[in-house]
């Protein structure tokens, strides 16, 4: 298993696919990198020569990836929250940010369903009110 960028060890797959295991490299970037490094995309990651690995590593060096990228994204979200805008409040509440419906669906943001039904019975209601 070749190690590109420190800890990333993409598996026994074609380079164009194994590169996608790096956070910040998706389909188009992977294709791009392989082309720029002049590597056969069908080649297995294990079969890369040392020289090819270093070429890839130098290309990856120029990108914001992994921890740095995660931190950047977190920082952007923190900014939205701190300025008190609508998108920030959606992030704070853990609800969808881009205007999707929330009456149903939105489970990715909301997490597992939790029932919040009405309180039944007179005594129970007054108990809730006095809380």
């Amino acid at each position: 298993m070749p190690r590109v960028m420190g800890v990333d060890i993409p598996g026994k797959k074609r380079v164009e696919y194994s590169l996608r295991y790096i956070y910040g490299v998706g389909p188009s970037r992977a294709r791009d990198l392989v082309a720029k490094a002049r590597i056969d995309p069908a080649k297995k990651a294990d079969d890369l020569t040392d020289e090819e690995v270093t070429r890839l590593a130098s290309l990856l060096q120029e990108l914001v990836l992994e921890g740095d990228l995660r931190r950047e994204v977190q920082g952007n979200i923190r900014r939205l929250i701190s300025i008190g805008c609508y998108r920030g409040s959606r992030h704070r509440k853990g609800l969808p940010v881009r205007g999707q419906r929330t009456s149903t669906n939105a489970r990715t943001r909301k997490g597992p369903r939790k029932t919040v039904g009405a309180v039944r019975g007179k005594e129970a209601r007054s108990a809730v009110k006095t809380e």
Binding site: I83, G84, C85, Y86, R87, S89, V116, G117, A118, V119, R125, V128, K129
Partner: peptide, 19 residues
């Protein structure tokens, strides 16, 4: 770069499940 309206919420959320 944001719009003024983004900072002035138009809806009030009253909590669920309270009689």
């Amino acid at each position: 770069g944001h719009r003024l309206g983004e900072f002035s919420p138009t809806r009030t959320f009253r909590k669920h499940g309270v009689a």
